[in-house]
Design a protein around this nucleic acid. Structure first.
Lengths: 331, 331
DNA sequence: TTTGATTTTGCAACCGGTTGCAATGCAAAA
DNA sequence: TTTTGCATTGCAACCGGTTGCAAAATCAAA
């Protein structure tokens, strides 16, 4: 037997509206009524039914949180931040795993059925069409870690991957490396493409050419290790820009196994600055994304979006930073 | 302008009930009516409102997923599995981050307000009282990675930590180590306590005593590293059972830095078999929990629980397994 | 064709809240 | 004391579905 508004109203000797109003921010209720209601509610153990409220207000306070990468530990941090920030704003994350099927249609339908107030798509590997699909059914959507688009059709918060690629090129060059290779994540990921593009352009402006380009199909150690072995067997290079720290660490492992001296004979720079890159077993020099800034900005933008859903699409880019460790020669 | 049941009904020339029934599993509708409705719905772009349905049926298909450990990468895998398994059953995970505030009261209230059908508390560090709090307000709850309790008041799915501790003791002993130490995770975590208890009992039946006992306050590398350094400075031992792989890897790092030969002069066994323990930079011998079995079993139990919420509390324990790598001598 | 059993259908009440509107109460101003 | 203005209150309709029940339709058997 569950307690409803009406029960509380009866016990407090007021109307149902009065009860509703004491639970509504900024509604007009006298202190006297409010305290009568509170008392009755406490005595009965009343808990407002948000589902019913959602129906009436057509606001659920639910936010779809779409993720497709449960391999990369960086996303655990992302989840941590998002859940915290959303909780602070009284928003609730409905988690969606898009790993196996990159076709968002089902998820779109599902989140629509739940009438979520907005959607966060956190992925650098999902195609832009995915976020668009949400927008097309009228759901406010933010693509975090998405691709920069000069004429955006969907809100994007993240980094400028091209710029980061150029930064990697300049950094390697400044340490005296000259034969620079690229070992990216999945080739189809826009983040990979953009980083490579920026890397190449960076090299060009330094009058250099990319020594080799190779990809790891996913962000696992094995894949990265195998890719690096192949690279070592077939290519010449004295420094490597890796599309992710996991791959960077795998490359580091493979190089060490091949007896290559790091950073003397080979320099490696990773991407993401995950927790364990700092462990002294690796000491991987890497480029970090300002995850905290990105997540904060996303949720803040989300807040604005809920006030004004028609707000035009914008792009928010944050600068990356080189994290100095032991896999590059000192400049 | 959003399309409702009534709109579809009007266009299809049937009653609202008919529309509702075509969207309800196992309801009685003729094929003719059903197809008329489907056609109208398609033409109008109708999406049923699950919130309204939830209100009417008092079933939301929402499941609270409570996590408090966003540091340990193992939980990313857990999240991956749970989201997948829940999705398969048309259940939706509402993610709750209990990191900062271990007092579950707010979360209980929130999940209650959303009328979630059930709650999964996935944690080995939260006190049992936390899961109980959910039960007390009438929410079916399963504590995953929880503590074994011979007279359980809450459903528990996980491993027998005591048994695992004994397994660690036997394993170290069988490799010829005799001065066995324990470096656990947070002391207050029941999993830590139980593993230590089992470890001690295992030693006792081998006529040995624990050489030293120490704890790391959390599951981070730094903390583990510092704890290990202290241990090395103050204690004598030739093998160490670590409460978690992160700590194990930190211990490994600290030992190497101290110039200790592993596994010859010091054996280390970890816990959890996380992805990177297998990386050849570590090759950490460890004890693995059968995460997949545990998650499967949890969701299956959850399914049963939804059918019959009054089902008595049960405990489901799965066996752990030693994963042989390079940080123990061969037997 | 009639009868009885079985499906299918629509009506209307209900799920548990919110909110516009008119009525009421109350205090300050006239 | 009467009037005016504002804060409070309750009524009743509404949000978008589900479902028990009785009536209508369908089907098979007689």
């Amino acid at each position: 037997m569950v307690i409803t508004l009406a029960d509380v109203a009866k016990r407090a000797g007021v109307s149902r509206s009065a009860v509703s109003r004491t639970y509504t921010e900024g509604a007009s209720v006298s202190d006297k009524t409010r305290s009568k209601v509170m008392k009755a509610a406490r005595e009965l153990g009343y808990t407002p039914n948000i589902i019913a409220r959602s129906l009436a207000t057509s606001r659920t306070q639910l936010v779809g949180l779409v993720i497709n990468n449960f391999q990369n530990p960086i996303f655990l941090e992302v989840l941590d931040q998002f859940t915290r920030l959303l909780q602070e704003r009284n928003l609730r994350p409905l988690l969606v795993n898009l790993s196996d099927n990159p076709d968002p249609a089902d998820s779109v339908e599902m989140l629509r059925q739940y009438r979520v107030d907005a959607v966060i798509v956190a992925s650098s590997t999902l195609p832009p069409a995915c976020s668009l699909a949400f927008k097309e059914v009228g759901l406010p959507v933010i693509n975090v870690f998405g691709r920069y688009n000069p004429t955006p059709d969907v809100h994007v918060v993240g980094i400028d991957n091209q710029h980061a690629g150029a930064m990697a090129a300049r950094t390697l060059h400044s340490r005296g490396y000259r034969a620079l290779g690229f070992l990216g994540g999945p080739e189809r990921a826009t983040s990979t493409q953009d980083r490579l593009k920026g890397f190449k352009e960076g090299l060009k402006s330094l009058k250099l050419k990319t020594s080799c380009v190779h990809y790891a199909d996913n962000y696992s150690y094995e894949t990265g290790y195998a890719a690096m072995k192949e690279l070592l067997a077939t290519q010449q290079f004295d420094a490597l820009f890796c599309g992710d720290d996991v791959i960077g660490m795998a490359a580091l492992g493979a190089a060490r196994d091949a007896g290559i001296s790091i950073p003397k004979d080979l320099g490696i720079i990773g991407f993401n600055d995950m927790e364990m890159s700092s462990w002294q077993a690796f000491g991987l020099t890497t480029i970090s994304q300002p995850i905290t800034d990105i997540c904060n900005s996303t949720v803040e933008l989300l807040g604005n979006l809920l006030e004004n859903p028609e707000r035009g699409a914008e792009t928010r880019l944050f600068p990356c930073k080189v994290i100095e460790r032991d896999t590059l020669r000192k400049s």
